[in-house]
């Protein structure tokens, strides 16, 4: 188990290193000089040069890469070119929205998908199964930002249960904060829950067809006991994979939903930073998100080993 974990941790470090290189040098080749963006078209050449020196843009790329990586390891993400504030603070501020939103949506998705998937698998071919599958088919097909707009129309504009957008802030209390994240979280969770339900159902159906389920039934277990005692845990590997993918997706992929609801999240931060060529912000946020994805993948790998004894011994 330890060895398995150590191996995974090694490959995690390598992935991070490669990803950081890719991000840094990809943004190097991006057209557009941030200093020129900041000063506008009419900037004097020597002012421009001075600003470039101040921002450290005149130094060689490998040196700047090392500075960037070294800084990040100490929690120093650099200074935003446009806002002149530490990037770390900006990110922290935005994470207060993005992280709870992602967790909220993931929680909703899991809470819906587990019972729905199990229910459908248990009654394969029944009206319940057909109904669940039909709803998930719609859930996967619906563009979530359109669903969000419709929810705004119904629940914010017509019924006035929620506000149409913006974030109340946690200072106003946890309830108010959660309330302003509810519609976005539902919009994000709908397609995710649909996918997860389908995965749960098909993974369960697959394991229910395994020989060891028949063995369990021959011992006298009822269909339900066999499902809970043997099939469920065996079906967890694909389900865990999807949950891991969804968390990474939700953290970064809320960008469009943030736009619908005017939420100050990470996605919008990147969006604005790109438009302003505030590359240091873009770099840092993307690196942070990639870091999150890789760490989540690592956690999922460890969860596999916890579920499946066959993985503990090897690799």
């Amino acid at each position: 188990m330890l060895q398995y974990g150590a191996r995974r941790a090694m490959s995690l470090m390598v992935s991070l290193l490669v990803a950081s290189l890719v991000i840094f040098f990809a943004l190097e080749i991006v057209p557009g000089d941030p200093a020129a963006y900041m000063l506008g078209i009419n900037a004097e050449p020597d002012t421009l040069a001075a600003l470039r020196a101040e921002l450290g843009l005149d130094r060689a790329a490998p040196l700047r890469y090392l500075d960037w990586i070294g800084g990040m390891m100490q929690g120093d993400f650099g200074i935003s070119h446009t806002y002149r504030t530490p990037v770390a603070d900006m990110i922290a501020e935005r994470l207060k929205v993005s992280l709870p939103l992602a967790l909220y949506a993931l929680g909703l998705s899991t809470l819906i998908a587990f019972p729905a998937g199990i229910w459908a698998a248990q009654r394969r071919g029944s009206a319940v199964d057909l109904g669940v599958m039909g709803v998930t088919q719609l859930g996967v097909a619906i563009p979530n930002f359109w669903f969000a707009m419709l929810m705004v129309l119904v629940f914010a504009i017509n019924l006035r249960w929620f506000s149409a957008g913006g974030f109340a802030g946690w200072e106003a209390g946890i309830g108010a904060g959660l309330k302003s994240l509810t519609l976005p979280a539902v919009a994000l969770a709908l397609p995710q829950a649909s996918i997860l339900t389908r995965v749960m159902r098909s993974a369960l159906l697959e394991t229910l067809g395994e020989d060891y389920i028949r063995t369990a039934r021959a011992k006298g277990l009822t269909r339900g006991q066999a499902l809970r005692g043997h099939a469920l845990r065996n079906a967890m590997i694909p389900v865990l994979t999807i949950i891991g993918l969804q968390f990474s997706f939700l953290l970064a992929g809320a960008i469009i939903i943030e736009n619908v609801f005017f939420l100050p999240g990470l996605g919008r931060l990147v969006f604005q930073a790109i438009s302003a060529r505030d590359l240091i912000v873009v770099e840092s946020v993307v690196m942070l998100l990639v870091f999150a994805v890789i760490v989540v993948n690592f956690a999922v790998d460890m969860a596999y080993a916890w579920v499946d004894p066959r993985l503990r011994g090897q690799r």
Partner: peptide, 21 residues
């Protein structure tokens, strides 16, 4: 109540007949 109690059964494939977890 009967299965496993009054009648037991053994299957062909030893590799897949046991729950791996």
């Amino acid at each position: 109540g009967l299965r496993g109690q009054a009648v037991g059964m053994v299957f062909q494939e030893p590799m897949s007949a046991l729950n791996p977890l």
